[in-house]
Simulated scan of single mutants.
Amino acid sequence: MAVADVKYNAIDPLATGADAIVTAFENQVAYCRDNGAPNTALICQALAEIVPGERGGTVMLRIRKWAGQPLADALPLRIAGGLHAIYLKGLEPELSPIYEGHAPTDAAERVADALERHEAFLMPWLDGPPQTNEAGRSWGFAAAMLWLGAKGLPRQFALWELGSSAGINLMMRRYKFDLGGVEVGPETSRMRITPEWHGDAPPAGDFDIVEATGCDVAPVDLTDEAQALRLKAYIWPELTERFARFDAAVEAVNRFPPEIERCRAGDFVERVLAREPQPGVTRMIMHSVVWQYIPQEERERITAMIEDAGKQATAEAPLAWVSLEANRDTHRHELMVRYWPGGDEAVKLATAHPHGSKVSWER
């Protein structure tokens, strides 16, 4: 089946087994295709064709015997990231026609050869979830702060990010944003976040970030060349503007590294919410494309802690919860906000491309 013919199939994110593995790869093909990444879609299509057969060596054997939940574990993106890393390192020129957009008809054979030739390099890529830290997603946090400020919350923010990865979003005080014509951030910034905007602009205004800390179970150090390559490999190669943003983020990290704790999200939330609130500062828990990787039990714990803390929030020391996560039914990312006091119900502010290139504002 060609990439253009692949359709989404309904699947329980917690499903396991052979059928779930094939469906996870096929859904990833459709997702990449529909989000401007045809070459990555072809890589995933090649992998989907290899799964039922016998090619691919020990790497594919491990994938076929995957004991976890392939969709929730983002299994296709794990191995796709490893293959892209091989290409970026110049170790597998036979993959070039795929990544350069020539759509070779023997893509499955090329990918199978690469899997078998680079088993030692690729196997560790299956050990953990993808790292997809992306500066382009920070548009959502900036827009949410403008919206919260217009609701009367203090425009000084303490940002607490879950799943910070390399901390690229934690550095957003140094980024320049143009959100549907509403500009905020330093004019001198090399990092320019200008998504294609549809609908009304967010409320005009400003904000000040007085604190920005985060957590991750496996933080990425962009000053380390190997770790930087790993994060870069998860960037879809078709989206060239993301590479420019990545380079700008690496430059920023080398000058002022972000503050990231190595810990689980639940433990981090418990600690930061236990602090004495600072009057005149909006505490904002935020995350993007990470909620699906947090175990269900921990998600429930985090939700309960935030809601309990929200009941204690005051107008002088409010609490906000901002997320930019995938809706598994619509296959679109949604910017959702809750805040206390006064905004307990979740509000959808926008839907967006997963990497922030297009935004549809809904408020």
Score class of each variant (00 low, 15 high):
142 A>D: 02
142 A>G: 05
143 A>K: 07
145 M>A: 10
146 L>V: 08
146 L>S: 07
148 L>V: 00
151 K>L: 11
151 K>E: 15
152 G>M: 09
156 Q>K: 15
156 Q>E: 12
157 F>C: 03
158 A>C: 03
158 A>Y: 01
158 A>V: 01
160 W>K: 13
162 L>I: 15
162 L>S: 02
163 G>N: 06
163 G>C: 09
163 G>P: 07
164 S>F: 01
164 S>L: 04
166 A>C: 14
166 A>E: 02
167 G>K: 04
168 I>S: 13
170 L>I: 07
170 L>R: 04
171 M>G: 04
171 M>F: 05
173 R>V: 00
173 R>I: 03
174 R>Y: 11
174 R>E: 12
177 F>M: 06
178 D>T: 10
178 D>N: 15
182 V>T: 04
184 V>K: 08
185 G>V: 05
185 G>M: 03
187 E>P: 01
188 T>Q: 13
188 T>V: 11
189 S>C: 08
189 S>H: 07
190 R>G: 04
190 R>K: 08
192 R>T: 10
193 I>C: 09
193 I>M: 10
194 T>F: 01
194 T>R: 10
195 P>K: 11
196 E>F: 04
197 W>V: 08
198 H>P: 02
202 P>N: 00
202 P>T: 00
202 P>I: 00
203 P>V: 05
203 P>D: 03
204 A>F: 04
204 A>G: 14
204 A>K: 13
205 G>Q: 10
205 G>T: 14
208 D>L: 10
209 I>V: 13
210 V>Q: 04
210 V>G: 06
212 A>S: 14
213 T>P: 01
218 A>S: 15
218 A>C: 09
219 P>D: 09
220 V>T: 13
222 L>A: 08
222 L>V: 14
222 L>I: 15
222 L>C: 10
223 T>D: 14
225 E>D: 09
225 E>I: 02
227 Q>A: 06
228 A>Y: 05
228 A>V: 00
229 L>P: 08
230 R>M: 10
230 R>G: 13
231 L>E: 15
234 Y>N: 11
234 Y>A: 07
235 I>F: 11
236 W>I: 06
236 W>E: 07
237 P>M: 09
237 P>T: 12
238 E>R: 09
238 E>V: 07
239 L>K: 13
239 L>V: 12
240 T>D: 05
241 E>W: 14
241 E>Q: 12
243 F>M: 11
246 F>W: 11
247 D>G: 13
247 D>A: 15
248 A>R: 10
248 A>L: 08
249 A>D: 07
250 V>M: 15
251 E>D: 15
252 A>G: 12
253 V>I: 15
253 V>W: 15
253 V>L: 06
254 N>I: 08
254 N>H: 11
254 N>F: 00
255 R>C: 00
255 R>A: 12
255 R>H: 09
258 P>R: 06
258 P>I: 09
258 P>M: 07
259 E>A: 15
264 R>Y: 02
264 R>C: 02
265 A>V: 02
265 A>T: 05
265 A>G: 08
265 A>C: 12
266 G>I: 03
269 V>R: 15
269 V>W: 13
270 E>A: 14
272 V>W: 07
272 V>A: 00
272 V>K: 09
273 L>A: 05
276 E>G: 05
277 P>M: 13
277 P>H: 13
278 Q>G: 02
280 G>A: 09
282 T>Q: 09
284 M>L: 14
285 I>G: 00
285 I>H: 01
285 I>R: 08
286 M>Y: 10
